[in-house]
């Protein structure tokens, strides 16, 4: 029998008021907080955190944009303003370890905050999930409902080339006992979804095709019924790309955390 349990997501300000500190701070990110589709990923990841019983917290309303889109767009001033605001918040709570489901937040906090005085151990959720699986905290007995399903993983540029994380998301998917297939352009040769460098917020420059369509065609071409991603922008771009090919009924785009939560049977 399974039961429904309501989750009260712990907020950092409350923990601090009680004099407590979390093992890990979950950095939700703007897409994770506002994007309707990606909120599902946030919820799935929180369920996993609850499921394994790790002491975590979120910043809640105190979180603001890391500044990544501003920096990639060339607005260094706005980026640094955001970064310093966030560093003040994080340092105010004495945060040491951060986990996030967004490769852009991950890259920015991990690589670009140190020059501005923010030093943290930053973990992307793919690595975090890989560790949980390796430690046996997430078991997915028998692979769960994705056993044998054909899944292809789309590399996020800011996880892959930017930070050399290629294997962690694949090892997470391996726990599903699915039929993992690679696109021709994968890992270091992966093709961008088209959203990076602040393209997410603008129309593409004139060309003969949208990048996400090019990538979605490649993903659909593998015969996969699930495109797995580990980035909110890739999620949007790949979903739109699949729709442009009228394949949205046959091919679904999921984040690796959603697949794990689903396979582990903790979604409600």
């Amino acid at each position: 029998m399974s039961e429904k349990k309501q989750i009260q997501v712990p907020v950092m300000a409350d923990l601090a008021a009680r004099g407590e500190s979390p093992e890990v701070l979950f950095w939700v990110g703007c897409a994770g907080a506002f994007d309707d589709r990606y909120k599902n990923v946030t919820r799935a990841f929180v369920r996993i955190l609850e499921h394994v019983g790790i002491k975590y917290a979120v910043l809640g309303m105190e979180e603001t944009c890391t500044g990544d889109p501003a920096k990639r767009a060339g607005n260094e001033f706005l980026f640094q303003m955001q970064a310093m605001t966030n560093i003040a918040t994080l340092d105010g709570y004495g945060i040491k370890t951060i986990v996030t489901a967004c490769p852009h937040c991950f890259n920015t906090i991990k690589n670009e905050y140190p020059a501005l005085g923010g030093n943290y151990e930053v973990i992307h959720h793919s690595t975090f999930l890989q560790n949980l699986i390796n430690e046996g905290k997430v078991k997915i007995a028998g692979g769960g409902e994705f056993k044998g399903k054909r899944i292809t993983f789309h590399d996020s540029c800011y996880l892959g080339r930017a930070n050399n994380i290629y294997e962690a998301p694949r090892e997470v998917l391996a726990a599903l006992d699915a039929d993992l297939v690679e696109m021709k352009r994968s890992r270091a040769n992966g093709l961008c979804c088209g959203a990076g460098g602040a393209q997410m917020w603008k129309e593409p420059e004139p060309g003969n095709k949208d990048i996400n369509v090019e990538r979605a065609e490649e993903a659909i071409g593998t015969g996969a019924t699930i495109i797995a991603s580990a980035c909110p922008f890739c999620m949007t771009m790949m979903s739109d790309g699949v729709k442009s090919q009228n394949q949205e009924d046959k091919v679904k785009v999921f984040d690796i955390a959603e697949l794990i939560a689903q396979a582990e049977g903790i979604n409600a």
């Binding site: 989750i7 703007c30 907080a33 994007d35 809640g60 309303m61 955001q82």
Partner: peptide, 27 residues
């Protein structure tokens, strides 16, 4: 980003709404 702390035009007061009515299945 300057006004709402997010690259989209959402109110910062809605930032934590995702946690409302959040449930999970327990075995």
């Amino acid at each position: 980003i300057e006004n709402n702390g997010a690259p989209w035009a959402f109110s910062p007061s809605d930032r934590f709404n995702w946690a409302d009515d959040l449930f999970m299945a327990t075995k």
